[in-house]
Design a protein around this nucleic acid. Sequence first.
DNA 1: AATTAAATTAATAATCATTATTATTATTAG
DNA 2: CTAATAATAATAATGATTATTAATTTAATT
Lengths: 127, 127
Amino acid sequence: MKEKYSARREQIYQYLAGTKNHPEAEQIYLALKSENPSLSLATVYRNLSKFVAEGKAVEIPGANHVIHFDANLEDHYHFSCQQCGRIYDVDFPAIAFNAKELEKIGQVQRHELVFYGICNQCKNKNL
Amino acid sequence: MKEKYSARREQIYQYLAGTKNHPEAEQIYLALKSENPSLSLATVYRNLSKFVAEGKAVEIPGANHVIHFDANLEDHYHFSCQQCGRIYDVDFPAIAFNAKELEKIGQVQRHELVFYGICNQCKNKNL
DNA sequence: AATTAAATTAATAATCATTATTATTATTAG
DNA sequence: CTAATAATAATAATGATTATTAATTTAATT
């Protein structure tokens, strides 16, 4: 199954790579739909899964059990707002872990650190 | 809405609190179903959501987009096997983070650190 | 202990994110 | 250009989770 070039895939990837908003599949779909009315939601999902499988993007589990996507592969962590569902980047340096403790369990491919809470934007709205 | 005692809820909580397996809702359901044939899956979900809302349990997003539950509230982290879906405890001491960086974003209630990879058990099977 | 009120449940239907199917279209190879 | 095959659009199907509702259980009150 040799991969063929696909304009759709390119659009989806470029959109994901060009935003810091950690969108969910549907948000990407809606954003690209306007320029491209024939775009199908399943195509977005299919390509996102492909990116993840290829290691070109990662999934971030968000609030409300919706998956968000991120094409930023540099070490960074996330803040997930339990109220609005937005995901923010947290610019920490990568954390060093006890490798021996992890080796006892398995081989780590990557890690995700997510802080859960209420973002300042929502906090202010709640006043 | 004053909470009333419920034998079902108690069973579900005790099961969750008594295991280190980070089960998903359906696993809890199946485990308790044998002693309690009239147990309903929705009841398991409802009570698990309640525990989470009350802070008596946390959700851990597992592989295959299934949610696992953990009633162990002590600081500890997780390893999620991408092959078998099992979730393991990682016994690190809690990590100290740059509070100022986080305050810029919002108020943190808790954090989850998940290592993704292949567990040793699966690795050996793959040989 | 019986009565009432309210919370909880069982059973099941509904929802919603995600995935699979299939006929059609686009891309690449020959 | 034609054949082969990957990708898509449209839609149906799946599967985890949530909502509904009538019946049951619990707790308070008489």
